[in-house]
Every structure is written in structure tokens, then in C-alpha cells.
Write a protein that binds this DNA or RNA. Structure first.
Lengths: 193, 193
DNA sequence: CCTACCGATCGGTAGG
DNA sequence: CCTACCGATCGGTAGG
């Protein structure tokens, strides 16, 4: 049963393994041979599933975005207060950026520039949806008087602060993800009223 | 006169040109041939000045840090109020991250991971000095009650917000550097009292 | 998906 | 700093 899914398992294997290798070594530091070997294929076989190495990169990023969008959408559309909504969004985002086994979005953050213009445009469609969710929540914060800033720049600064953690966070050292989320929210919004 | 400086001009040329190319195309997207050609050398000649391509990368980063440190130190040691000091530091940092012709620090932010462990350790010494300046100013903000957060994480989040702008800032579009600095400061510290 | 391979690129070097 | 070059790597492909 479930033949349809099984048929595509090899492609999914390639994407998952590529995500891990790209995150660890970077796009240029990973060869298609590395990826093939890691899933038990011969060196040319990834190109049966993907037209080019860059298509694998785009697939990794798209996988990360489509996997992360539902949770973020649920938060944005929930009945939480603006502050709680923001806190939840920050926490969920930290998970996909820093969480164990979550390699997809870090690859997007590290190697966005390695995409060809065409692929970048394709992935950007999904990225826009994600950014729009943040924009909506930031707008709610502004409307509630919890944040003072130009709305677009505020979002970019906030997301930058969070995303940049991919460069300094070390699992098991210092604060955990819950604590970082709390620090970030209280730094941006001030202490709870 | 000034022979000593003139002798090293070719090396300095290589570093300056490499910085521009690395920023535009990334470390892996730039060949040593590209760099040689851009300064009017033959393909093998950069290796008369540098032992390896990675040594060029390290030189670019060290140039950026040593050029940026004096201004930041002057701000940190000045008699400005904590808030003014922070504002000045943010503005100065935006300049070396986003300012025209300032390619060195963006290269550091983009391609830090391409350094070998040995070179990374060498450049880290300078980076630590820069980070310490920020830490000091952040500590002053905390002491003055202008910022509520764990000190180390606060610095990382703040620097992340600023550094990440290298990925979204487009010169001539949207806010200019002065305006971004103001937005950032008022978002982090709240409106001026 | 494998076999067998190519064509180009690229960092780096010897010798001058 | 140039000439001339190597040795390895790598993305990608034809044919099955």
C-alpha cells in the first residue's frame, strides 16, 4: 500500500541527505558525489532525479519552507494576543532554524546566493508567504503599541536577529531555544505588563 | 619617498580587489584567476603574495577588522551617554557592513565558514576585540536600565539584526543608513525619553 | 539507476 | 612576478 509515496522515496532521500550535507559543509563544499554516496547511489545517479546540483539546492529550500509554513500560519491565524502570537512565532522559527535535524532553513540562510536567478525567483514565492506572516504579526504589534518602528524595517531587523542565531547557537551550550525566545521577545517588546 | 608602502602595493591591490569579488560572487564563486586578472597579473602570480586562496580570504577579513576597530574603539571610550554611544556604534557598524566600497566585513559575514580552522582562529582574535566593544556598550545599556535581557544574548541578537541587513539592504532603495540606525535604536531601546 | 566517461575548471607549483 | 604546466576534482551526460 501507499505505492505512490514509496516511488518517490529516493528523491526524498536525496533532498534530506543533501540538506544535512549542505548545512554542514555549505553548497560549494558538498559534491554531488558526496550526496550520491550518502544515499547509496553511484555518482551520476542524482541527475536522474534532478536536472542540476542547483535544483537539489532549491528542493531543499522548498522542502523547508513548505514544512514550516503550516505551523507559522496556524500561529498567525490563531486567537492569541499580539504578544503571545509573536512569542509563538519566534519560538517556532527558532525551532526550524536551530532545532535538531532541521537542516533545510539553515541551508536557505547560508546559501541563498548560490541559487540561479530563475530558481531564486521560484523559491522566493514560498519565502514571500513566510515573510508576509511575519509582517502581519509585526503589524499587529505596532497596532497594539507594543513596538515602535517602521513596519517593514522592524520585521527585517527582528527576523535578522533570529536568523543570525544560526551562526552562533551551539546546542547544549548557554540558553536553550525556549530561553532564547523569551530573551528575544522581552528585549524587543520590553517586560510583560 | 615612502618606499616601504609602495613595495606592498600589489599585495594591498590583491586584497582590495579580492574583497570586492568575494562580496559580489562569494569565496567559492571567485577564482584566483579572477583576482589575478582584475589586478593585471597572470594566473599564478597571486601565489607569490599569498600561500593559498584561503590566506587571501583571511587577509580580506583582517583588513576589514583592523580598519573598523579604531572608530568603534573611539566610540566605546567616548564620553557619550549610553544611548548615544549605542546609536553611534550602530551607525558606524552599518557603514562598514552596508557602506559603498566597504566590502571587507560583508565577506567576513558571508564566508566565515570557508576559513580553515587555523585561519579562523587567527581572525577570531580581531573579531573578539570587536565583539568585546559591543559587549561593553550593551552592558552600559543594561546598567542604565535601557535594555532588559541577558547580556550576552542581547548582544548577539542586536548584532544579528544589524549584520543581517547585508542580505536585504539595497542602496538607494527604502531607508538610508542614518534612518536604519534610528529605526534600530528606537526599536531596541524604545522612544527617546 | 548504473557504467563509463568527458570536458572544463581550478588551486597550486617549479623554474626562471 | 611570468611561463608553462600538472593533478585532481567535479558537474553532468550517453547509452543501456
Amino acid at each position: 500500500m501507499n505505492q505512490t509515496v514509496a516511488v518517490d522515496n529516493r528523491r526524498a532521500d536525496l533532498v534530506r541527505v543533501a540538506a544535512r550535507l549542505f548545512r554542514e559543509r555549505g553548497f560549494d563544499g558538498t559534491t554531488t558525489r558526496d550526496i550520491a554516496e550518502a544515499v547509496g547511489m553511484r555518482s551520476g545517479s542524482p541527475f536522474y532525479h534532478f536536472k542540476s546540483k542547483q535544483e537539489i539546492l532549491a528542493a531543499v529550500m522548498e522542502e523547508g519552507l513548505t514544512a514550516g509554513l503550516p505551523a507559522a500560519e496556524a500561529i498567525a491565524e490563531s486567537a492569541l494576543s499580539p504578544r503571545e502570537k509573536f512569542q509563538a512565532l519566534v519560538r517556532a522559527h527558532l525551532e526550524i532554524v536551530l532545532g535538531e535535524g532541521h537542516d533545510f532553513i539553515p541551508v536557505l540562510l547560508y546559501d541563498w546566493r548560490r541559487l540561479t536567478p530563475e530558481l531564486r525567483e521560484r523559491v522566493q514565492v514560498l519565502r514571500d508567504r513566510y515573510d508576509q506572516l511575519w509582517q502581519d504579526v509585526v503589524s499587529e504589534l505596532l497596532a497594539a503599541g507594543l513596538l515602535r518602528s517602521d513596519s517593514a524595517v522592524a520585521r527585517l531587523l527582528l527576523m535578522g536577529a533570529i536568523n543570525y542565531s544560526v551562526l552562533w547557537y551551539k546546542p547544549g551550550q548557554g540558553l536553550n531555544l525556549d530561553q532564547i525566545a523569551e530573551e528575544a521577545v522581552s528585549m524587543f517588546l520590553g517586560p510583560q505588563p
